[in-house]
């Protein structure tokens, strides 16, 4: 498995995969947006306001998913000391923070007209805000050290500590009563969302996922080029 994570091999295969990922992302997001805004029906209770869902829910899923990737990469980096895993974790963080911010703000914009409030401190909303702070804390911590390996180590530990928040986010709506409603899609039993709304939602969600994969590959390639650049400059310096 680590064969693909060798930096040179990674540059090789990611360069070939990238255009396909980018094209698939563009198609899915365009189709998803069209279906969400023009084809999907209004909700029987929420009317047209339900169209916020097609932004909010994929962003919420990605907020947790990206954190999962970040924590898993951090574990790999800590246990096997693999530099590409550190890069994967570090380059995931700004993307995850972006998805979380989008989830929080779109949720607020949805809560005001439907629930009658921009924000409440219920278990779901609070745990997602904590997730946002975890991303910011991770980014700050990784950059707080002069020596990159130490920053990476500290960040990896924080990422792993924060992983306890993921089940709290997922199950907060089942464990405690909250203003936020329980899950409509990833639940025991059939989804409680009509197929005409579920399909656009899933297409948007896959589009968001591929968007993340595409940008992660781009950012990891940038980081690997930066590492190579540092090595070349060191050689120049030593030669001079």
């Amino acid at each position: 498995m680590f064969r693909f994570a060798n930096p040179n091999r990674f540059m090789n295969w990611s360069g070939k995969l990238l255009p396909w990922c980018a094209a698939a992302t563009a198609i899915l997001l365009i189709v998803g947006t069209y279906l969400a805004l023009f084809v999907a029906p209004p909700d029987y209770q929420q009317g047209e306001a339900v169209r916020i869902m097609y932004v909010h829910v994929p962003a919420a899923w990605m907020a947790s998913f990206v954190y999962g990737v970040m924590a898993a990469s951090s574990a790999v980096a800590l246990i096997w000391r693999h530099p590409v895993a550190d890069i994967a974790a570090q380059q995931s963080a700004p993307l995850g923070a972006g998805f979380t911010l989008l989830c929080l703000v779109s949720g607020s914009l949805w809560g005001e007209p439907m629930w009658g409030t921009w924000w409440v401190w219920d278990a779901r909303l609070t745990s997602v805000l904590v997730l946002f702070f975890l991303y910011l804390g991770y980014i700050a911590l990784v950059n707080a050290f002069d020596e990159p390996t130490r920053g990476a180590r500290a960040g990896a530990i924080l990422a792993l500590v924060g992983v306890v928040n993921l089940p709290i986010i997922k199950f907060s709506v089942d464990w405690w009563n909250t203003l936020h409603q329980p899950a409509s899609v990833f639940r025991i039993g059939a989804p409680t969302i009509a197929a005409s709304m579920l399909w656009p939602l899933l297409i948007m969600a896959v589009g968001f996922t591929l968007f993340y994969v595409t940008l992660l590959l781009v950012r990891m390639r940038s980081a690997l080029m930066a590492a190579k650049l540092r090595a070349l400059r060191l050689q120049e310096f030593q030669a001079a």
Binding site: P41, D43, V50, Q181, T192, I193, A194, M197
Partner: peptide, 10 residues
């Protein structure tokens, strides 16, 4: 505040 359930339907 209104609390809606997890059902979404046309």
């Amino acid at each position: 505040l209104a609390k809606h359930d997890e059902t979404y339907m046309p």
